[in-house]
């Protein structure tokens, strides 16, 4: 009897400790699961809202749309209306990414691996500040400052590289064109990409950096063999955050771009393209009924694009996950 009592005593104690642990565990698990589920619920709610509100426009015939919406182009249906907007959105964001991503990686590398510590801190602070500027201010800056400054540059681009469709002339004056928008968008998404990339670069294990250096790598070779491959998925995530902002940016585009509705690569000419978000902002005050529904349908298209781009990026990251360094 005594032996069983002695054996039982510790078992009871462990069980008691475990049960309180289990309570905390459970509370934590429920909170975390709840937070995760909430995100999904919000996402689903947005998707459902978009589909329901867009439905009248999607189900209406092209004639009905043209009759009841003043700004709806004649001989167009919903797809031919949304198409150029999707094209313009993608074109502007792609150009902005083309400018911003290499620049952001360069700045982040400079901060994490080249700059003296003090300078790195100051630079990092300035970059974070850039992220805090509201987009309407970027729009003002783009329209008032950037547009006249870049105009001669665009002029030169179109006269020397005009044979490339992208730079086909004549360059518009004032330069209220897609390339100017891309430049401003690039500045806007630069901080988020830089800040996230910098954090990822700083996470590179010292061990791997030293491994590269000990093999006789120069600093750049060390970055190429140890830092960049390690940071690859982080850079992609950072770029996706930036791309998300570029795709959805409204005010800056609205204030700079002279809109058009063409599938045109001529980013130096005015009145060629328009983005979905800027179009919604421009038409919404005048819209009612079917017009609002049509605008929401374009919003649905933007939602789908953003999701598709993000999923594509995830797929790229996942394809090489054995080599990610996470194992």
């Amino acid at each position: 009897m005594t032996t069983t009592a002695q054996q039982d005593a510790p078992r009871v104690r462990t069980r008691r400790r475990r049960s309180s642990d289990r309570g905390v565990n459970r509370a934590f698990r429920i909170t975390a699961t709840g937070a995760g589920a909430l995100i999904l619920a919000v996402l689903a709610a947005v998707a459902i809202f978009l589909v329901i509100e867009a439905w009248p426009s999607i189900s209406a015939g092209s004639e009905t749309l043209a009759e009841s919406i003043s700004w709806f182009p004649e001989d167009a249906n919903l797809l031919t209306f949304v198409g150029p907007l999707v094209f313009g959105t993608l074109l502007g964001s792609a150009l902005a990414m083309l400018i911003a991503v290499p620049l952001a990686i360069g700045i982040a590398l400079f901060i994490s691996h080249y700059a003296p510590r003090r300078m790195a801190q100051a630079l990092g602070y300035v970059i974070d500040l850039l992220a805090a500027i509201p987009s309407v201010v970027y729009g003002l800056w783009g329209a008032i400052v950037v547009t006249p400054v870049v105009q001669p540059v665009w002029e030169w681009l179109s006269s020397t590289l005009g044979w490339i469709p992208l730079f086909a002339g004549p360059a518009a004056n004032p330069a209220r064109v897609m390339l100017t928008v891309a430049v401003v968008l690039a500045v806007m998404i630069l901080p988020i990409i830089t800040a996230v990339s910098r954090e990822v670069f700083l996470q590179t294990p010292r061990l791997h950096e030293e491994a590269a250096l000990a093999l006789g790598a120069t600093r750049w070779e060390m970055i190429r063999t140890a830092v960049l491959p390690f940071a690859r998925s982080g850079i992609i995530s950072a770029s996706m955050l930036g791309l998300g902002r570029a795709l959805g940016e409204t005010m800056a585009v609205l204030m700079i771009l002279s809109p058009g509705a063409m599938y045109s690569f001529a980013v130096l000419q005015a009145g060629q393209q328009q983005t979905i978000a800027a179009n919604i902002a421009a038409q919404y005050p005048e819209a009612s009924g079917l017009g609002v529904s049509t605008l929401i349908a374009t919003g649905l298209a933007l939602f789908v694009i953003t999701m598709a781009v993000n999923m594509a990026a995830r797929a790229i990251v996942a394809r090489r996950k054995d080599f990610s360094g996470a194992n």
Partner: peptide
């Protein structure tokens, strides 16, 4: 850099490059 190419080093904790294959590691 030239010195380190002549004098190789093996560290306390194994540190193969995680983003490279076995073969690429040898050739790094």
């Amino acid at each position: 850099v030239a010195v380190r190419r002549q004098v190789g080093m093996v560290f306390q904790r194994p540190n193969p490059f995680p983003t490279m294959s076995i073969e690429e590691n040898v050739l790094a």
